[in-house]
Design a protein around this nucleic acid. Structure first.
Lengths: 193, 193
DNA sequence: TAAGATACGGAACGATCGCCCCGCTTGCAA
DNA sequence: TTGCAAGCGGGGCGATCGTTCCGTATCTTA
């Protein structure tokens, strides 16, 4: 009857601790190396056995997804903050560049976002949805006050974000985007001919 | 004495044929699937054994590099053509978007170009150098006539290219860049404040 | 504190993949 | 045509990696 109800059996203290440790370590490692790192490496750095990782996350992809979901929600929270404290134009651009920076420092996130348009193994769909809605809001507000050109859909900005992440990552740690930032920003504002 | 001289032992007819077949097949397969495809897959599709692939290309990376080098030289040739037949602004933008399209349809090339800034296993350095020089030329000409904003180095445009490839690839086959193309183009022209 | 449930570690399994080897085939020259 | 070097196929080796399994250690509860 209540089969679809989450069975909330409370975890044992050490289990909860280990789970958190694994999640945190996975974030660091995926951020540094991308999805490609062996699970054993994560387990080793977290100071647990591989079996422990698999007890908490049924599969490598599930672990990755959990990490990405965290990061995405983090960004959504940032957006809420920006909406409350900045004017629409500022909020939009601040969010956009914050997203780019996040992706530049987190290879795993960048990979996940770049793949999210594809068929297979998309990251947590609800998280992506929330992210998109948030982004859409910010965009609409910015467009309403003329800070961003019209004729731009969320998908466009989402794609632009992926592109900027790729640029930033391409640059490596040697300096940020520099002029490229201006180029994109000018383009988004809407160049009058 | 002549140790560094290329020993040009003429290949046997079937060997030359096979080599060409492998190269061609590798291009198709890398383009479709990226560097990740197993060598055996390429061998199978080319109708040869894995051993044959390795006789002609000492390593998987070497094969990949040969393919990428081909594509890069192809682009360089296109650039020469554009310089001869178009005005500087047109030539630059045509080349830029041609590069983006090339990368969008060729996953292997896109991967190679995105990685080229990194330390390990960079693609054929001379080809990259030629490509950069060509690109630099086109850029300088376009800047000289005011078709592209100043303060932009080759590296900037190179990074922008990588970013646009990522966008285009993110979009998938469902339509091209659309508005994003305008955004980038406007940004490159130089937004007046 | 003792019993039982829960979680742990890490060895082991199976699949994948890059690369090598060797017995056989094929093109080329005399 | 024949001899032989050059080339070929594909099975196999070793390494990597995701995932599972199970004997042991640890937490919880009574």
């Amino acid at each position: 009857m209540s089969a679809s109800q989450e069975s909330v059996k409370p975890l044992r203290a050490d289990a909860r601790r280990n789970r958190a440790r694994v999640l945190e370590t996975a974030h660091e490692v995926f951020a540094a190396e991308g999805f490609g790192v062996p699970i054993d490496e994560i387990a080793r750095r977290a100071g647990v056995g591989a079996g422990t990782v698999y007890r908490h996350f049924p599969t490598k992809e599930a672990l990755f997804e959990a990490v990405v979901l965290d990061r995405l929600d983090h960004l959504v929270a940032l957006a809420a903050d920006l909406v409350a404290t900045r004017d629409p134009g500022d909020a939009f651009f601040a969010f956009f560049w914050a997203g780019v920076d996040e992706g530049a420092g987190d290879k795993g996130l960048a990979e996940a976002m770049a793949e999210a348009g594809y068929a297979a193994a998309v990251l947590a769909p609800e998280a992506e949805k929330r992210f998109r809605n948030t982004f859409g809001d910010l965009l609409a507000r910015a467009q309403a006050v003329g800070a961003v050109r019209g004729g731009l859909a969320v998908d466009d900005v989402r794609a632009l974000l992926v592109g900027c992440m790729a640029m930033q990552r391409y640059r490596g740690e040697a300096g940020g985007l520099g002029v490229l930032r201006e180029i994109v920003q000018d383009g988004l504002r809407g160049g009058r001919s």
